[in-house]
Design a binder for these strands. Structure first.
Length: 302
DNA sequence: ACCAACCCCTGGCGGC
DNA sequence: TGCCGCCAGGGGTTGG
C-alpha cells in the first residue's frame, strides 16, 4: 500500500519517463476514479497537454503541464494511489496483463503512443483536475518542481511531509504535545505531517521504542521532533529499497515491486517474534488501524 | 478545535 | 469443494 516512499518511487518514474511528453487521448473506464468530475471536461483539460513536472507532497502526486500554445496551465492533474493504485507506463503496442486490464480505470495515451495506465483494484485511488493556488508560505509546494504553486485540495488538506526541507517540526511538535490522543494518531495525521501511513508509523514507533498507545501529551517536544525525524529517515531508506510491496499491489511505473518489506521490523508481523529481543509481537486496534508492536521494546511509559 | 465513527471497495483467507 | 463473513487500508464526510 503506497505511502510516501512508494509514491516517491512512482514520481521519479513519471519524471524520468514523461517530462516533455504530450497527451493525445484520455480514456475513462471507471468514472468513480474521477470523484464526480465531468468526464468530458476531465478529458478536454488534459488532451493536448504537455507534461512539464511531476511533483509530490506526502502521498499526493500531481503533474503540471502546458497547453497547446505552450502556456503553463493554471490547473494540475492530482493523483492519489489510494490502497492499490498503480501508474503503469507501457511502450506502444504493449498490452496490460489480463489481471491489470480488468482493473484499468483511466488511460492516457501519449503522442508517441506510449500509454500511462491507472490501474486500481480497490478503487480508493483517484485522478482529479485541480486548480493551482500559491502556497501560504510562498515556498515550493512539494518535491519535483521549484514552483510555489500547488493544487488547491493539497494546500487545504495536506501538510508538508517529513522529508520536505520546509517542514516546521518545532511548530508541529508543540501542537502534538497538547494532544490527548495516542502518538500514533498524530503520526498518521496528514494535516500535521503528511506521507506516513500504517507501515511507516509502526516502524517508526518500534525504532523509537515508543508504544503506539502512548498519549501524545506524555511525550516531550524533543521526543516528538525526534520521532518525525526517525520517520523521515526510515522512509528515506525505504525509497532506496524501491518501497514496500507488502501485498503485491504496489509496483513502480515499470511494474517492478520494491524490497523494503524484508527490512520491516514489526508491520505485518503480529504473533511473530521481535527481531531484537524475541518477544512475541502484539497487535492492538488504534485509530481504526491495527498497530503491531513489541511489548518489551516499546513499553507504555507514564 | 478536536475527535471518533463510518463509508467507499475488492480479494484473500479462515472457518464450516 | 464452495460459500460466507471478515479484514486490510487512506481519506472524506458527518456528527458529537
Amino acid at each position: 500500500m503506497p505511502e510516501l516512499p512508494e509514491v516517491e518511487v512512482v514520481r521519479r518514474g513519471l519524471e524520468k519517463q514523461l517530462l516533455g511528453a504530450k497527451i493525445k487521448e484520455v480514456e475513462v473506464f471507471f468514472p468513480g476514479s474521477l470523484r464526480g468530475q465531468d468526464i468530458k471536461r476531465f478529458c478536454a483539460a488534459l488532451e493536448g497537454w504537455t507534461i512539464t513536472a511531476a511533483v509530490r507532497r506526502g502521498k499526493f502526486l500531481w503533474l503540471l503541464g502546458e497547453d497547446r500554445e505552450g502556456q503553463q496551465t493554471l490547473y494540475s492533474l492530482v493523483i492519489h494511489l489510494g490502497m492499490s493504485g498503480q501508474l503503469l507506463i507501457n511502450q506502444p503496442q504493449i498490452e496490460l496483463s489480463h489481471k491489470n486490464q480488468g482493473h484499468l480505470r483511466v488511460r492516457l495515451t501519449m503522442e508517441d503512443d506510449r500509454t500511462v495506465n491507472f490501474v486500481d483494484q480497490r478503487t480508493f485511488g483517484r485522478m482529479v483536475v485541480e486548480p493551482l493556488v500559491e502556497t501560504r508560505d510562498k515556498k515550493p509546494g512539494g518535491l519535483g518542481a521549484g514552483s510555489h504553486l500547488v493544487p488547491r485540495n493539497v494546500e487545504l488538506n495536506v501538510a508538508r511531509d517529513a522529508l520536505d526541507p520546509n517542514v516546521d517540526l518545532e511548530k508541529i511538535s508543540s501542537t502534538v504535545r497538547k494532544r490527548k490522543s495516542s502518538i500514533k494518531h498524530s503520526l498518521l495525521d496528514q494535516k500535521l505531517v503528511s506521507g506516513i501511513g500504517n507501515i511507516y508509523a509502526d516502524e517508526t514507533l518500534f525504532a523509537s521504542g515508543i508504544n503506539p498507545g502512548q498519549r501524545a501529551d506524555s511525550l516531550s517536544e524533543a521526543q516528538i521532533q525526534e520521532l518525525f525525524k526517525t520517520a523521515g529517515a526510515i522512509m528515506k531508506t525505504a525509497i532506496k529499497h524501491g518501497g514496500t510491496s507488502f501485498d503485491e499491489l504496489y509496483v513502480d511505473t515499470s511494474g517492478n515491486p520494491g524490497y523494503f518489506e524484508q527490512e520491516l521490523k514489526v508491520y505485518g508481523r503480529g504473533g511473530e517474534s521481535c527481531k531484537t529481543c524475541g518477544t512475541t509481537l502484539e497487535k492492538l486496534q488504534q485509530s481504526g488501524r491495527t498497530a503491531t508492536y513489541c511489548p518489551q521494546c516499546q513499553p507504555l511509559q507514564d
